[in-house]
Design a binder for these strands. Structure first.
Lengths: 198, 198
DNA sequence: GTCTATATGTTGATAGAC
DNA sequence: GTCTATCAACATATAGAC
């Protein structure tokens, strides 16, 4: 009742709802290839109306990248990320990262595609690198403990793990046939044990 | 002597040399975010001069995607891609794909980032999907043979494999510290056996 | 909160001189 | 083969009415 003021307007956007649709449109065509006109069309309002809610196109990207990075960084705050053997911490972080990814596909997708075309994008890239560095360190530790295969350079191992997890955004959909829990199980299983049967 | 005609011009571009530099610039900023002005700057000539060699920006993308796809599709022409047990064919194709990737990083990188923003891009995506489908079929076969773990859906397995291999473009550099052969070895080793020590 | 109209810059591409 | 000059289209963003 408080909303819509009794008139016939079909839209009632706020920053949050615009952000969510914007991120989807950005992902569909790529951020740079998405014009404010295309975004307006997806929202069913005009370009000008968007600027009532957000100051700029880049601000939408900023909000999205912040959210994605905050979620990933929160994983490292969990005690399980810094308790016990490195291999267990690594398993926890990989599983959690996959969970964040399936829970926030759109936001993480956008983050993973950032190229560093502005200061803001470069800052996001730096935060992402810092997160990756933490995981790389766990791989190094786990390898020193003898839990990770010694025949492959730890940076290569870490990068292959990032790559496999990150690639999930290319096919996982919340409403798809594969359950998010199962995805996390599968990623950890393949990462640790490979695809061959025992 | 035949070239440069005795004048002081420092450039002698043809379509091939322009393409190679263009692909690098496209990858650095993203295709859409790269303007012909930026490309001209990287080449050290003006925008107009580029159009003497190529008819359009999109034509450069077309050339690049064609080359990437031709190289990948050529893998499937090798007898080893269709001889013997599915698991052996799969190993061969994964290793070869990694080889093509390291041999043609720039071109494959561009291919993997295409979003389908034009008819041309959508055709490239379709060829890429056809290639992936062939590999997925090998995974299905190998799983039926009992060589691939039965607890994970074969499509998921295939996708995780694509993801891991494709992610190599994000860090492999021809002049980097890791040898291309070693990369292919590592990818196959991790894909088949995982990152844990035996 | 959304609209129409518009300001201002940048884009991909062309014309024509040298 | 490269240049200067220029175009039409489209970009992001703003002003002000309702």
């Amino acid at each position: 009742m408080a909303e819509n003021s009794g008139n016939g307007s079909r839209h009632n956007y706020d920053q949050e709802s615009i952000l969510n649709i914007a991120v989807d449109v950005f992902n569909k065509h790529g951020y740079e290839a998405t014009s404010m006109g295309m975004l307006a069309e997806a929202l069913g309002i005009t370009k000008s109306a968007i600027y009532h809610h957000v100051p700029s196109k880049e601000y939408l990207l900023q909000l999205a990248l912040d959210r994605a990075l905050n979620r990933l960084e929160a994983i490292l705050d969990d005690p399980l990320a810094s308790t016990g053997p490195a291999i267990d911490k690594l398993r926890f972080v990989l599983r959690s990262a996959t969970g964040v990814l399936t829970d926030q596909v759109s936001f993480i997708t956008l983050l993973l595609r950032v190229r560093g075309n502005s200061d803001m994008e470069r800052e996001a890239l730096e935060r992402r690198r810092a997160f990756n560095r933490t995981i790389s360190d766990l791989v190094i530790q786990a390898q020193q403990d003898g839990a990770i295969r010694p025949d492959i350079d730890s940076r290569t191992t870490a990068r292959l793990l990032f790559g496999m997890i990150g690639s999930v955004v290319d096919w996982y959909r919340p409403d798809g046939p594969v359950d998010a829990q199962k995805v996390a199980d599968d990623v950890v299983a393949v990462a640790f044990g490979g695809v061959r049967s025992e």
